[in-house]
Write a protein that binds this DNA or RNA. Sequence first.
DNA 1: ATGCCTGCAAAGCTTTTGCAGATGC
DNA 2: GCATCTGCAAAAGCTTTGCAGGCAT
Lengths: 134, 134
Amino acid sequence: METQDIKKAGLKVTLPRIRILQILENSKQRHMSAEDVYKALIEADEDVGLATIYRVLTQFEAAGLVVRHNFEEGHSVFELAEGEHHDHMICLETGKIIEFHDEEIERRQREIAKTNGYDLEEHSLVLYVKPRKK
Amino acid sequence: METQDIKKAGLKVTLPRIRILQILENSKQRHMSAEDVYKALIEADEDVGLATIYRVLTQFEAAGLVVRHNFEEGHSVFELAEGEHHDHMICLETGKIIEFHDEEIERRQREIAKTNGYDLEEHSLVLYVKPRKK
DNA sequence: ATGCCTGCAAAGCTTTTGCAGATGC
DNA sequence: GCATCTGCAAAAGCTTTGCAGGCAT
């Protein structure tokens, strides 16, 4: 239930926050920009300011409720932080986003960091692909 | 020689373009924002407009002379496209950028794309790390 | 000479911030 | 009741664009 998540984040349970969380949960797109969320709210006849959406999404990110990605320059997209960590594959022709997780790559990344005297804190991996021609 | 590279890109060999290429070649930092290049030119007493730097860097990117990265949201950084493809590791404490190349990860990425019915066109991999505590 | 380039200033976008009023607890 | 939150409008960054003059070939 959204209310619990918001409370756990140390934030007051307000209508805008509930609505934003619901949009992220129920939208067909898993990855939405602030503008996307804004439009979805308008369509649902909910009146939430764009500035609020930015503020709330940033708070949700800090609380670990959502993850922010910068797939392309110019704007961020947000996705609900549920389930396992995963990386993304973006089709250059259709724009479709596919999520995947590969333990071999994860392990290798940790090894590479270690080899250089570092600990891996996080990473960002995006594969840009095109439909395979047979 | 810079002149050749610019010519090969189908661009006129102008002073601003030569200067920008030289900055990228000779600066201590391999990764520079448009603003960084601008400041470096000012310091070198070269008078080049910021708009020109953006235009030229974009042209150089299209020509494959430089690579654009979006390590952090808000602004791009550019690096000279010389030598092999490589990925980046960024230290969260010092901001240091380390380049690396790992064939195992490269291979696995191609496999993952293939498994999903795609061909890998390009990818972006950034590891965020912290100095290893013993 | 002509078409590509450049600088400047203005505009465009996404995101952030100041502030006064509204709301949750 | 009080602190937090929100909407609005303005501001802030980075980047792009229009335009008139300048430069390379």
